[in-house]
Nucleic acid binder design. Structure first.
Lengths: 255, 255
DNA sequence: TTCCCCGGCCTGTATATACAGGCTAGCCGC
DNA sequence: GCGGCTAGCCTGTATATACAGGCCGGGGAA
């Protein structure tokens, strides 16, 4: 009969059907950022549910950042944004999937190299030590949204290069191998170089967000990564939750 | 003792009272991680609300990661949050002084205005409401390093304009008036407009970090600020504390 | 023409009720 | 004593109803 795996019993879950329908419409482009979504009453008519159920579906999508609501006006699709939270490390693949879009990763480079001064410094390894290096372009619905250049400490993750990154992101793999105990994010606005422009399909003067991330496992630096986002289209959010107890970042200026 | 029909306006918001009570109990240590929270029925009795209202309070706290629920067992405080208020927004003046440099603030504008659509939305005030506005350029060793355009909720900080911002930054003043309970940072890379370029002394194509910061005190938005940093020279850092740190707990929730 | 009020739409909130299904303690028969 | 069944508590979900209050456009009054 009912499986223990799936919380059985709630066969109906109409509010989930409504949420899925709206997410699907967004994914297929039927609903675009800024568009008005069906009102609660319209959903009542369309799905044959009560208004409380429609209300719950819309309210939850609002909490999840998908929709924006205002009393007296209506419900609208939130503008496109990357919720790359500076407080925690989110997985870009998950985020894209949560938005109901497809994620692909194009591997441009993957190999071994000797650490130059910058890399050695970042990974806290001696100059010239062997490190692993990968360059991956992440695609959302076949459009490039992130260039990821990563250097990995081979002492921590020796079989990094033999992993299939089209099905598992580097972050996923690395958090499995070595649990993260600390991280650092440095955000800058830059003019991307030719290569990054090419990967992201940007014009010459398009500003770009560059995030430099290092993660530690215990005392060792596991990896550092340079992440490039097309700045005018995507943005980073760091948000504390309302209420007194949640993790927090220190965001400040430094030279 | 059937409850008198209570008119359900937006003023009531019983579910928020319940949430605040639970959060307060956690903050005060009356409820510790792992403890069982009152069941929906108990909350119904204690607060004189309907079960749907108690359900909503608990469900939202679950979404926010504060509580864990399981049918048939009960509702429990999540094991996760150990630190309470690390909430910290660093002060640009302090940072400059820490570097042994001098800090000055040039006040370009300070006055009152009517909220346009963007500002009204950000401060969660009605369109056209009076808000206070200031535009300040921060100088480190007499070089401009930050343009700060700020809008302030006059209901929270009525004497904002009469404060001397050359000796105290807006942030310092505002945190005194209304302790911050939540914040939001949105970071983008942009091409600065003419005015910002002028204040920062930048060339035409110089990329710029734009940080949009909102801070709350309780339920009210206290202030929102647009901060511009010359991107190539300055950067933002977000760092977790090393040692036994929360990011692990956050990531560990996946499994 | 301009201003104001009002009705209609939309979201926000609250209530009373109902049934499904997970979980556990305890009773009862073997 | 042991195992199975059941009563009772708990959450999950859905419904019908109701009032509060923001927003807007149309129509009537000044």
């Amino acid at each position: 009969m009912t499986k223990a795996v799936k919380p059985a019993g709630r066969e109906a879950r109409h509010y989930i059907r409504i949420k899925e329908r709206i997410l699907a419409d967004i994914a297929e482009g039927k609903l675009r950022p800024g568009d008005r979504v069906s009102s609660e009453s319209e959903l009542v008519a369309a799905f044959g549910v009560s208004r409380m159920t429609a209300n719950r579906a819309l309210r939850e999508l609002m909490f999840e950042g998908v929709l924006k609501r205002s009393a007296g006006i209506g419900t609208f699709v939130s503008p496109k944004h990357l919720d790359v939270d500076l407080l925690q490390i989110r997985n870009i693949a998950d985020e894209i999937l949560e938005r109901g879009h497809t994620h692909k990763a194009a591997i441009v480079k993957a190999g071994s190299m000797k650490a130059d001064a910058n890399v050695a410094d970042a990974l806290e390894l001696p100059l010239g030590a062997a490190v692993m290096h990968s360059l991956i372009v992440h695609l959302e619905n076949d459009e490039p949204i992130q260039v990821e250049e990563r250097y990995v400490n081979p002492l921590i993750a020796p079989d990094y290069l033999s992993t299939d990154f089209s099905s598992m992101t580097p972050n996923e793999y690395l958090t499995k191998v070595a649990p993260i105990t600390a991280f650092e994010h440095v955000v800058q606005a830059v003019k991307p170089d030719t290569a990054v422009r090419k990967y992201l399909g940007l014009k010459n003067d398009h500003p770009c967000l560059r995030v430099f991330r290092r993660t530690w496992s215990g005392e060792a630096v596991v990896t550092c990564a340079l992440l490039y986002y097309p700045g005018a289209q995507y943005r980073l959010e760091a948000r504390s939750t309302k209420g007194p107890c949640k993790p927090v970042a220190i965001l400040g200026e430094k030279q």
